[in-house]
Structures are given as C-alpha cells and as structure tokens.
Design a protein around this nucleic acid. Sequence first.
DNA 1: GAAGATACGGAACTCCGGTTCCGCTTGTCA
DNA 2: TGACAAGCGGAACCGGAGTTCCGTATCTTC
Lengths: 193, 193
Amino acid sequence: MSTSPDILARPLRADARRNREKIINAARAIVAERGEAAQIDDVARKAGVGVGTVYRHFPNKDALMGELLRLCVGECTALTRSLADREDPWEAFADMVRGACENAAADAASRRTWQAAGDDALPYAAAEKAELMDAAALLIGRAHAAGVLRDDFRVDDMGGLMCGLGAAIDAMPEEDGRWRRLVEFALDGLKAR
Amino acid sequence: MSTSPDILARPLRADARRNREKIINAARAIVAERGEAAQIDDVARKAGVGVGTVYRHFPNKDALMGELLRLCVGECTALTRSLADREDPWEAFADMVRGACENAAADAASRRTWQAAGDDALPYAAAEKAELMDAAALLIGRAHAAGVLRDDFRVDDMGGLMCGLGAAIDAMPEEDGRWRRLVEFALDGLKAR
DNA sequence: GAAGATACGGAACTCCGGTTCCGCTTGTCA
DNA sequence: TGACAAGCGGAACCGGAGTTCCGTATCTTC
C-alpha cells in the first residue's frame, strides 16, 4: 500500500539511490517543459539512464507521475503548515493562496504536475493530499472564526480555486506578474464583507 | 486560408451535408464525455459513419477540433453581443462572465472543447476568437468608463479568467451550483471599489 | 435512366510511446 | 578479493490511435 519504496525495507544500493534522485529531477524538468506530453524515454535520457532503470524504480508511468505529485503536495503542505502561527488569520489564508500560486508560477514543474498527473496517478498521492487538506482546513477554520473569510467558502472549494488559479497562471503570458493581479482579485472576492 | 469548406464553393451533396452535421454532433458528444482523449474512431462510430468519411470532411483531427472550437467561440460571441444593449454596464459585464460559465457548466462539450483543443487546433478558430475579443472589449470598455470594473482588469485578462473559471468548474463536483459561488467570488473581486 | 462526379466504408498501414526482457556491470559483504 | 545479489542499459515488443487507400454506393444532371 505504500507508494514509495519503503525507507525501512533494506536500503537501496548507493548507485540506485543516486539514480532514483536523477530520475525524479529529470522527470520534473521534462514535465516542466512538456507537461502531460512528457515521455519516459526523454526522462531516461535526461537522467542519463536507460529506460529499464526508470522502470526498476517505478513500475509504470503513473507511478512516476504520482511520485512527482506527492512531492509537490508535500511542498504545499509544508508551506501551509509554516503559516499556522501567523497572528492575522486573513493574511495566513491569503498567503497560503499566494504562496501556492507563487510556487506554481515559479516553476512550471509543480504547476504542470497537477495538470499532467492523470486520474491514475492520483491514488499515489492520496495520503499526502489528505494531509494538505487538513493543514488548509486549519487556516480556513481560523479565518472563518475570525469572520474575515466568506463563510460560504469551504475547504472543498480549495481544489477548484487552486485549479482555476493554476490554469489562469498557465494561460497567461509570463509577462511579469500579470497573474498576480488575478490572484488578488480572487482574494478580494473571498474576503468577508 | 478559410477554415470551413466555403459556402460559396459548389454546394455539398445532400448526403454529405447531412453527414458533416452528424459528425460534428457526434464529436461534440464524444468530447463532452472524453475530453482531450476523444478518438476519431469513436466519433465516426457515434456518427454512424466510416472513419474515411470523417477524413473527407476534415483533413485531420486538429481540423475537427478546430471546427468545434469555432462553433463554441461563435456561441460565446453571440452571447456577448446580445448583452451590448444592457443599460447597467456592470451587469452586462458580469452576465457575460456568468453566461459563459453557465454555458460551460451546462454542456461539458463546450467547456472541454477549449481544453481539449490543442495549440494546433487554435489557428482554425483564430478569426472568430478575434471577434469574440472585440465584443468583450466593448463591454469591458463600458464598464471601465462607468467606473464599475477595476481599471487594472484588461481585455487580455479575460482569457486567464475564463480559463481559470473553466478549470474550476471542471474540477468541482457538479453538486448543483457550488461553482456558481466561485464565480460570484471572482466577480466581487473584479468590482471596482 | 444512364453517365459521371462525388462521397462512403472500413480494412490496413504507420508511427509513436509505454513496457518487457535478459545479458552485462557494479556495489556489497565476508 | 571473490561471489552473489542488486541494479543497469537499451533493443525489441506490443497495442493503440491517426491516417491512407481504393473498391463500392449514392447523388446529380441531362
């Protein structure tokens, strides 16, 4: 049921661990530039490794994409948790959204991973996604309690919101920061009034 | 340069015109349910027609998707234009956004067409997209003039906005109208204050 | 209603990308 | 250092999806 080769199971051989790392980095890069059209062969080439090796580490493409997704989700969770001790509940919420977007805008890999990861890759990251939702729920709960966030905005809406912002960011020419305006518009719309 | 078989060129044979219609309808349906994974064979089968026939009408898949896109864009343009005589400039703008979303939510085909149409399909609809932008620019200009729309919101932002809302709608369980809230949030954020 | 043009159907072809397989190499451990 | 397990490379395989081709059927026109 565990999705990544357990750290507890006999440790990987040194070279294998190194290769695994190289593969993941390469995959990130390829996904960043090609999105869902990323190909295993390209990943292998970029990693300086044979296809067979990729398949030794990940049983199939979905598993690889799933791993990437897990990592992305993990980053988001870390960010979200780091905001838990903010005093201002609105700023905590807003910064969560801003941070995630900033992240998405900064490296295409993390943004595209969400999009590129098909439904089949999702299960691999289910556990960490749940954690992320928990972390987000905390911030959202506080914002609600403080009466600064529209009370009809629910945790479950985060998915749609981020998905929307992600798509918007992707659709917008990088032209520095145009997208930031959209994020602020959205946040303004979410503020209780 | 024209993207659809010119109406002026000798008219299609009766059965051919009928088939063309069937193909387009079938394609809409298939795209609605499968999105970008839609397949020519399925379209042909659904249309009750051979693959060859599909290729007689559209030189390749992109052309077919492009045609679908053209139709969608056309609908949007019609909607937008129909709002040109509204008195309240804010409501005209807001209803444009709402209408487009309503449209997107109501039939998956139109929503997914935008997503499914790859970059290669875009050129086929370039002309009508320009028209749509013009129509939208009119409403946006009026709203700006009336001072009801944030003045840093530009016509060029419409793409990102709609793309975002579309993705959000798609990501949200249909559960009636949850997405409408998101749209209203966004609109609130766009109102001048 | 016959001739010619137009359109149709669908089997077959091609290309592309994920996956498998197995002989060879490299790390690990005694 | 030698033996064995673990890992590697990449050619070959395979299935799936777009596209082509051509014999046949259907419209249109005189």
